[in-house]
């Protein structure tokens, strides 16, 4: 059986917000180390991988590995019934077709209980090769959100170029072009810092609508990392104490 007690429903709500536009159904793979989810969008252009560490829960027990097939729209509805600071327990029996969610109010005696139907999901899990990336950019997640939202007003794609100068995001639209250069900052201890580690110049083009989707994870984590090598998928990584959410996005190819 699974029993996982989270300090705050808000964490799950934010996670769901960060993946529900990409994926409709997904297996939450539970084992004694925690909960993992890996899913691709319908067009197989983007992949999201989530990990929640067992140690990050107030209480965590999972006797044997079990997949919980979840419709994310349904889970979003059930989570809307929780206050952000409700203590939240997820429970499922072995071979169960129901996920039980209990919300305990922090400052009152309210206890709410919901049962959600689980489903069988055939998911084609992919092996993600260990990659040495040629460039790693670390920046405030809110800045990343801003850049991709701004440029998505102009065009469908963005070219991301990393050089010694900094990281440049450029988009060409029918009516307007735009580019944003973010220079490396001196003080990399600052939470607003932009850090660039680079072995070689990289330049890649991606679809902005996916990046806008990924950037919703900014609510989980103040920093984001972009990992890039020429001609391989971009990795956008948000690490938030209790685990991580990572997105992979296949590049667009030349004109």
């Amino acid at each position: 059986m699974l029993e996982a007690k989270l300090a705050e429903a808000g964490t799950l709500k934010k996670l769901l917000d960060a993946i529900k536009e990409l994926v409709t159904d997904a297996n939450f793979e539970c084992n004694e180390e925690g909960i993992n989810l890996q899913a691709m969008d319908n067009s197989h252009v983007a992949l999201v991988a989530v990990h929640l560490e067992a140690a990050g829960f107030k209480r965590y027990r999972c006797d044997r590995p079990m997949p919980l097939g979840v419709n994310l729209t349904s889970l979003t509805k059930v989570l809307k019934c929780a206050k952000d600071d409700d203590i939240t327990t997820l429970k499922a029996a072995d071979e169960a077709d129901v996920l039980n969610l209990v919300y305990e109010a922090k400052n009152s005696d309210r206890i709410a209980e919901y049962d959600m139907k689980l489903m069988d999901i055939d998911s084609d899990t992919l092996g993600i090769p260990d990659t040495e990336y040629d460039a790693r950019v670390t920046m405030p997640s809110a800045e990343f959100t801003r850049v991709v939202r701004d440029l998505s007003q102009l065009g469908e794609s963005v070219r991301i170029e990393v050089s010694k100068e900094g990281v440049r995001f450029a988009s060409e639209g029918e009516a307007a072009n735009g580019s944003v250069l973010m220079k490396q900052t001196d003080d990399d201890e600052d939470t607003q810092a932009i850090t660039i580690e680079m072995n070689q110049h990289v330049s890649l083009t991606f679809s902005l609508k996916y990046l806008v989707n990924f950037s919703k994870s900014a609510s989980l984590c103040p920093r984001v990392q972009l990992m890039m090598s020429n001609d391989v998928p971009l990795l956008v990584a948000y690490d938030f104490g209790q685990g991580y959410i990572r997105y992979y996005l296949a590049p667009k190819i030349g004109d």
């Binding site: 691709m40 197989h44 252009v45 992949l47 084609d124 090769p129 992979y248 296949a250 004109d255």
Partner: peptide, 14 residues
């Protein structure tokens, strides 16, 4: 205009 690659071009079965 360029085309969109699929992740299947890069990631294989586990």
């Amino acid at each position: 205009k360029g085309g969109q690659k699929s992740l299947a071009n890069f990631f294989g079965p586990p």
